[in-house]
Write a protein that binds this DNA or RNA. Structure first.
Lengths: 184, 184
DNA sequence: CACCATACATGATGCCTGTCATGTATTCAA
DNA sequence: TTGAATACATGACAGGCATCATGTATGGTG
């Protein structure tokens, strides 16, 4: 290689960082390859030295965000209180207003369903996420822990998506508060 | 007017029909104005005789789909059984596989949050939908009927979105089934 | 019957986008 | 020290897009 391998690998990671942030903020179609490269301090040219296509970057971006999401989840105390805090943060106004740093399911799930390559990458994420969520926290109804986890996740994702889609802070807050009140 | 007013109005409705279907199937960015016009049997030219811009069509398309959604909801029997049937249909594989005819929240909410004009239109829909949903069905916990309705909606929307984003029918079915089992 | 308003088709324009071609500079390996 | 491989910048290209311009045909109105 002609450029320092370490720096190249770091640039690769920066592209993934910026891509997964920008995609979550504006959607796949709302961000161009050139914009992502510019955000990492490069020009649009060397993109194809790093990724085969924009769709490949989307799939890799999902995997990248997934790893961070799972790391964060595993760092939460595996107790009832830990779960309550996790849910409360998930359903907070801060999270609602920072999609670029937040849950990739809530930010991109609708668009993911239309991109086959990305869909495969996301499926792996969701499987791991459900498994981790189920095993990491205690569940009163032990015989149906996984079912309870799935229901909790569905509520969280749905509530966050609806709260973000609404132009009225009162309604958005109400949705987050009501769902939080029965999950926290 | 030079063309029969009735036919023109009917074409206007057809544009809205096709637009709201195609948008739900492929997302706002995934459908072009020309494609929508072609789907109605017209060419791309007269689009701007009917709508001020693509964004205006998106907002109108939301309103159009909202009216149909609310009409359908009000036609369901206002009983516990009616609600169960409604939820079961919402969380069915048929609904999952037919986004073009289905819930506009599940199909477009993620993208709506990024389009201010559309967001305003959607806010009106969600307010009306929550109100209708709350008032139309009986709720055991009368003092918190609205909260229960919001929680139920969040679960339904989240589950459907996740089920659609997944490339694995077993997992998708599991999500729908688990959420249905505690709501139906 | 004549006129005017307007919804239509065709076509053009300018912009943005994903992708590829080319030349260059540099670092690692020999 | 030299050569070769490669990540970079610049630039080009073709396609698609929203939007607008123009001409035309038509039906309701006077």
């Amino acid at each position: 290689m002609r450029y320092p391998a370490a720096e190249t690998a770091e640039k690769h990671q920066r592209i993934l960082d910026e891509a997964s942030r920008l995609f979550r903020e504006r959607g796949f179609a709302g961000v161009s390859v050139g914009e992502i490269m510019k955000a990492t301090g490069l020009t649009h040219g060397p993109f194809y030295n790093h990724f085969a296509s924009k769709q490949a970057l989307m799939a890799e971006g999902i995997r990248h965000a997934s790893e961070k999401t799972l790391t964060d989840l595993r760092a939460v105390p595996g107790t009832g209180e830990g779960r309550s805090a996790y849910v409360a943060r998930y359903l907070s106004a801060d999270h609602r207003d920072a999609p670029g740093q937040g849950c990739l399911m809530a930010a991109l799930a609708c668009e993911i369903s239309r991109e086959p390559e990305v869909k495969r990458s996301f499926t792996l994420h969701l499987k791991t996420y459900i498994d981790t969520f189920t095993r990491h926290f205690p569940w009163p109804r032990k015989q149906d822990a996984r079912g309870d986890a799935i229901r909790m996740l569905s509520s969280m994702v749905g509530a966050l998506i609806l709260a973000r889609a609404v132009d009225d802070d009162v309604l958005a807050d109400e949705i987050l508060r009501e769902v939080k009140s029965k999950l926290g």
